[in-house]
Amino acid sequence: MSSAMMLLGVGLIFGALVIVIAVLALSPRGDLGVNRSIAVLEALTSAPTEMKKEIDASFTDRVLLPLLAKAQGLGRRLTPADAGDRIHEKLELAGNPRGWTADRVSAGKVVCFFAALVVSLLLTTVMGLGFLPTLVAVVGLSVAGYMAPNLYLYQQAYERAELLQRALPDAIDLLTISVESGLGFDAAVAQVARNTEGPLAEEFSRMLQEMQIGRGRTEALRSLAERTNLPDLRSFVSAMVQADSFGIPIAQVLRVQSSEIRVKKRQWAEEMAQKVPVKILVPLIFCILPCLFIAVLGPAGIQIMDSFSGTVK
């Protein structure tokens, strides 16, 4: 009796499963789901271009740009009111790197700060440091991350100043030759900007563009001096402004400026040459002399050790 009831129960369960499968197979819902998916795909492929752009937005547009905008807003709130002017001045000295603005520098400070904070926390956790070393490492790396954009701009401004210093004597010589050959000052500056390369040629081109849009020569020259922190270039601009104001022949002023800058360049080269022995002293003491002592006194030290070890035996 019990076995008959068990067989009946198994049969009923099997029959119910067959009925459910048959209903699902014959039901139009499956086709409806497939048709709905096909309809969605067709709608996506036939959608207008504007809707496709919104749907197919890249990871940068969907995530990175909104985060950058929030970081810019946070950077504006955390920095003082005059921070934008100071950052703009640093950007001018660095040559206005492409894509860099005052807002992006502020946002970069915030992003670098939080990135350095997270990295320092992970490193100290992995290394298993104590509370005080962890605090010092986290604070130090976070401050370094916050100051990283400023350090980058400072390095860019330093390298740009060196390029300006090297290109200035040749540019003034070319200016002098062009003016003495009969060209006007503006035409001579255009000749220098066209035949040279580097940041000085870019500054001369910008000065000419400012003069073409209506600025006076004196204002354009002073703007050129404000965009650089090179003393020789500023003295040259001051001499040109005074010559233009008092009516002094420009060729004569250029000749004097050329000779003075050549003398300064020679003195700068002699100064750099005098610094070489002092700079080479540190690697000589800590790197070269120890290796020399090891190569010269090493065999003698080994023999002395062998002789002492033999005596002890």
Results as ranks from 00 to 15, higher is better:
A107P: 12
G140V: 12
G73V: 02
A102G: 00
D103L: 11
P133F: 10
G145P: 02
L135Y: 00
D103M: 07
L151T: 08
A83Y: 08
T124K: 03
V139H: 02
W100M: 10
G130A: 07
G95S: 08
D82S: 08
L132M: 14
V105M: 12
G95R: 07
N150D: 15
F131H: 01
L91V: 09
G75S: 08
T79V: 08
G95P: 04
G75Y: 12
P80C: 06
D82I: 00
E89I: 05
Y146L: 12
A83E: 09
L78K: 06
V126M: 12
T125S: 15
F131W: 12
K109S: 13
P97M: 10
V110S: 09
G73Q: 07
N150F: 11
A148K: 00
Q72W: 02
G145H: 04
A148W: 10
V143P: 03
V143A: 14
A94Q: 04
V111F: 10
V136E: 02
L91A: 05
L135P: 01
Q72E: 15
L129K: 06
A144M: 14
Y152G: 01
V111G: 04
R104M: 13
D103V: 10
G84C: 03
E92I: 08
A148T: 07
G95L: 08
T101S: 15
E92N: 12
S106R: 15
A144S: 15
A137N: 05
S142I: 05
L132I: 14
L91W: 08
R86Q: 11
V139S: 13
K109A: 14
G140T: 15
L91D: 07
V110G: 02
L153K: 03
A102C: 03
A71Y: 09
A144Y: 06
